[in-house]
Design a protein around this nucleic acid. Structure first.
Lengths: 147, 147
DNA sequence: GGCCAAATGCAAGTCAGTGGCATTTAGGAT
DNA sequence: ATCCTAAATGCCACTGACTTGCATTTGGCC
């Protein structure tokens, strides 16, 4: 039988036409294992000590441009990154999904299961001349841990 | 006949129990005249020269806490403020409304006319234990000027 | 192995926003 | 009208996220 489509950081990078370097492999690995979107300090903490923050910032910018990852903001002023942009493993996962922000502890979660209703943009009645690319939906509230 | 309910910065501040100071009156005035959410540098530019930025930051934090204004983020890393939080002139306007961000020029607009469907949060099927306070909806795209 | 654009690492800079503290002031009490 | 005090201001320095410049290293192709 054919290979079961491993989808390693390595293969993802090659498929996107990016060079395979330690930092890139590391960042992709961290993000694919993370349960929720995390910020740069958190990513850095899971990478080998001594990893340069600037390189990680540049790596994440590259990934975002290439749509290997997507980013969200919580209430604070930093970006949180999560694996799975448009070029994610399964094309089915390639849509924008809603997020949940806990305003108590600041954590952000992807509501990957949910889909933003296609009717939403329509129902808001945006004026003519506006070209809507996508809708961003962030639910604010309190998570079970802070409940 | 009775006074036609002027709703000046002065009256708004008094009604909220805040002291009436030049900076506060100025900030409220600027925001109430602004057509779209603007950031601190833009607010500062419309205030008398020499106005202290720190004071404006603190003023905006106070206003946000008291819900005299609301704030949104565009693609950049700064907050944009707009008049009209929960304690706005008309109570009818007191809901959270969707926003539009032009990813080309960075401007943000309030879609004040539109209402976020009450069914939205429900339809996303948030897990038990999550207490949703409100939903944030931001449409991304290109505005008529950049179209 | 050798080449070279791409990626990295380090220093330094930018920019939004905050904290500390002495001074001023709004506005109720007198 | 004057006094008093907590609240607000102004100024300084600071934090933290992110960027820019540049010299050095390296992935990947020949």
């Amino acid at each position: 039988m054919p290979k079961p489509a491993p989808t390693t950081p390595d293969s993802t990078l090659k498929a996107t036409g990016l060079r395979v370097t330690p930092v890139r492999v590391g960042v992709l690995g961290v993000l694919s294992k993370a349960a929720a979107p995390i910020d740069v300090p958190a990513i850095l903490a899971k990478l080998p000590p001594g990893t340069d923050a600037v390189t990680v910032y540049r790596t994440l910018n590259t990934f975002t441009r290439k749509k290997l990852v997507h980013r969200v903001r919580g209430e604070d002023r930093s970006w949180r990154y999560a694996a799975g942009g448009a070029a994610a493993e399964t094309e089915r996962h390639a849509h924008r999904h809603p997020h949940f922000v806990c305003d108590a502890c600041g954590t952000v979660e992807c509501l990957s299961g949910a889909e933003i209703p296609r009717t939403l943009v329509r129902s808001l009645g945006v004026g003519a001349g506006y070209g809507v690319t996508y809708a961003e939906v962030v639910l604010h509230g309190v998570c079970p841990r802070c409940g």
